[in-house]
Structures are given as C-alpha cells and as structure tokens.
Design a protein around this nucleic acid. Sequence first.
DNA 1: ATCGAATTGTAATAAGGTAACAAATTGTGG
DNA 2: CCACAATTTGTTACCTTATTACAATTCGAT
Lengths: 165, 165
Amino acid sequence: MWHEPDQGDAFAPHDHALCQSRALAEAEERLRQQGARLTPVRRRTLEILLEAHRAMGAYEVLDRLAEAGFGRQPPVAYRALEFLVEHGLAHRLQRLNAFAACLHPGEDHAPVFLICRVCDKVAEAHAGNVRSELSSAAGELGFTVERATVEALGLCPACAGRDAE
Amino acid sequence: MWHEPDQGDAFAPHDHALCQSRALAEAEERLRQQGARLTPVRRRTLEILLEAHRAMGAYEVLDRLAEAGFGRQPPVAYRALEFLVEHGLAHRLQRLNAFAACLHPGEDHAPVFLICRVCDKVAEAHAGNVRSELSSAAGELGFTVERATVEALGLCPACAGRDAE
DNA sequence: ATCGAATTGTAATAAGGTAACAAATTGTGG
DNA sequence: CCACAATTTGTTACCTTATTACAATTCGAT
Ligand SMILES: [Zn+2]
Ligand SMILES: [Zn+2]
Ligand SMILES: [Zn+2]
Ligand SMILES: [Zn+2]
C-alpha cells in the first residue's frame, strides 16, 4: 500500500532539486501576480528554507543569511520570514518557534503540519476534515474559529522504519 | 439553542468560585493517587491559573508568586508550571507561550483549545473527532501522530455578542 | 538524629523577538 | 537624466521567554 508522492509530502522520497525549483518558480509567479517583490534577501531566505525541507529557527536562518553576505541582525531574518509567511510562501510552526517553506503555495490553505521528531522534516497534510471537526467542536460552545494551529509531532515513515529495525 | 455549561467551558457563565475549588479538590485527589506532592508553590501556582481562568505567561505567574513570598527567579515559575503540566493539571498553549489550568483534570485527554482573542479566556473542547481526523490525514502520508497541538483563535460567544451590538 | 531524595532559591546566560531610526535602493514623474 | 517618495535593508538597543548549574532547604524514612 504505497501512495503517489504529492507536493506537500516531505517524507516521501522525491527529486528534491526539482521540488525546490518548482516551489521557487511558483513563488515568483505568485508574487508577480500580487505585485510584491522577491528581493535578494527574501529569495535567499526562501531558498534556505527549501533546501532544508524542515523547520528552521529564525536565528538559524539568520546565520545562513549572514554567510551569504546579508546583515547579521535579527530583524533581517524576521522581516524576510514575515514577508514569506504573509505571502503564503512559508509557515510558522508555533510548537517549535520555527519556520518552514510552504510546500504547496497557491492553494488557499490553512494547513495541518506533521513534524517528525527524529529527522525534523515537516509535511503538510490535507486539512479539510480536521478543520471542519474543529469548527463543529468549537460551535458546540458557541465559539467561532478564525485561525487555528494544528501541529502533530510524531514519526515519519522513514524514521519509523529505521526504528523498527 | 443553549447548552448545558460543562466543566471545560470557560465561556459559559458559571459559579467561578465553585469551579476553582472543585478543580483544586480534584487536583489534590489526583496527586494523592499518584504519590506526588502539591507543595505550597505548586498549589499557589495552580490557584493563580485557576483564578485567572485564562492563559498566563510564565513571567506573569512568577510575579504573582513573588507577591506571595516565593522566589522571583524564572525557574520557580517554570518548575511549578512544568509539574502541573506533567500531572495533567495545566496545559501549555504554544501559540501564546503561556499556560492555563486544566479545566477537567482526570479525564484522559489531549484537548483542543479555544482561545478568545478579545477576552483571552481559554476553553477546552471535545477533541475526539478532531484527533481521529488528524490521525487519518497523517496516516495517508504514513505518518504516526504521537502528540498534537490544536489551538484555535477566535471569538467566544460573549465577545461575539458584544461585537455585534 | 541522620541520611538520601526531593524541592526551592539564586545567579548567570541562552534563545527568541521587536521597536526605532538611519542608510541604501527602487521606481516614477518632470 | 534628476529629484523625490516609497520601499527595503542595515544596525543599535532592548525586551520577553526559557534553561543550566549549583547551593540551601525541606521531607520522609529509617
Ligand atoms: Zn522536497
Ligand atoms: Zn523522520
Ligand atoms: Zn484539560
Ligand atoms: Zn471572549
């Protein structure tokens, strides 16, 4: 029982070079439509997140940006990351105080994150049913959900396999 | 269409003095069974969370502990809060870097939190269906969920009513 | 009373995040 | 091209959140 590796699935073996360049191209296209600029820092920041294919702390990103010749002060990283998040190109993971590139930008989304506790990779799962159950549970208390954070910690298939051996 | 106010529902009008004392009594009982000690700092920490009936940052708790004569250093609060979380008497809210007293200790639970963005109150909703949808969405990627954070930001019924006026 | 374990106090520091302002860059109308 | 406004980037300074390490105390059981 194997599945077609989809674009949100960081765990499935895949051509990661292609995965990165596609995400970058999608980002460019998306920003062009919105009239926003993918400046050098922002571009490099997105590349850093995409290369890692996992969640990274702002200071870790900052170190990499500094290596690439950009400023070494926190706002440099936070601003670029905030820009990416606002434009749907990255997500913030509350549980880790960290950021990860969005794996399927463009789609309207409020994703559910799956974080492997062994390899730190992050995937985005289909959220529709989870969200609707959440709204309905909230509705029973008269609560209106505006935004929700859904983050699961666990084992990805690769690391689960390694464990079992 | 009104509902029976249940124990996890911080939004429903209720006798809060009773709500607190019941939670405290349940906490004592629970810890006695586990052979853990509800020492003065720990007890006061739980009381502080229960009084507020909302999420509080560790440093806010620390200030209150200091007022009550306990140490003014971060570990004092973090240790007490960690103890309460470990024993199922409080929860950590990732989204806010904050803590809240558990509203129904004893029940085996992995709650879903509803956080009102206006009044900051926190309720716990029934999570069963949300969790199972989450596990099933994760399962499609071969991912095993061990622990999950589900936190919704939005409007509680009282604040929604005030808004509409 | 005495010993070991658990708990609390304290100092020092790491990690995460933001406000404020200056310098540089970019795009636009004249 | 030039002036000029808007945006973006750099830097300083500071704030909040969290942990490590170790000393002092308290608790429970011999
Ligand atoms: Zn990839
Ligand atoms: Zn893994
Ligand atoms: Zn609870
Ligand atoms: Zn409210």
